[in-house]
């Protein structure tokens, strides 16, 4: 079976997000006064083969821990869908 996975990775809450801060300031400067915080992360989309959702999930967990995210500074969440 083919699966499509969306992984979002963001900096942990305690880690300073300099990009997010600068973008927040820019949003305020152009009039979006109600914005309270901006955090910038990344989105990774991938397609893969797998016999079951459980198997795919196991693979994704391992990929994130080993390479896609750095557990020292980042958290990740993912959505798995059938293709």
């Amino acid at each position: 079976m083919q699966w499509k996975v969306k992984i979002s990775i963001k900096l942990k809450s305690g880690v300073l997000d300099a990009q997010g801060k600068a973008t927040h300031k820019a949003l305020l400067a152009i009039g979006f006064q109600k914005v309270q915080e901006v955090r910038i992360g990344k989105l990774i989309e991938l397609k893969l083969e797998g016999d079951s959702r459980t198997e795919v999930e196991k693979q994704i967990q391992e990929m994130c821990q080993k390479l896609l995210a750095n557990p020292v500074i980042e958290d990740f969440v993912y959505e798995i869908g059938e293709l």
Binding site: L11, V15, L16, A18, Q19, A22, N70, V72, I73
Partner: peptide, 17 residues
């Protein structure tokens, strides 16, 4: 070295960007 876990911590984007 930090990515490999040989040294603790991480190096992130400079404060000033």
């Amino acid at each position: 070295l930090t990515e490999a876990g040989l040294l603790p911590g991480a190096l992130i984007r400079n404060h000033c960007l």
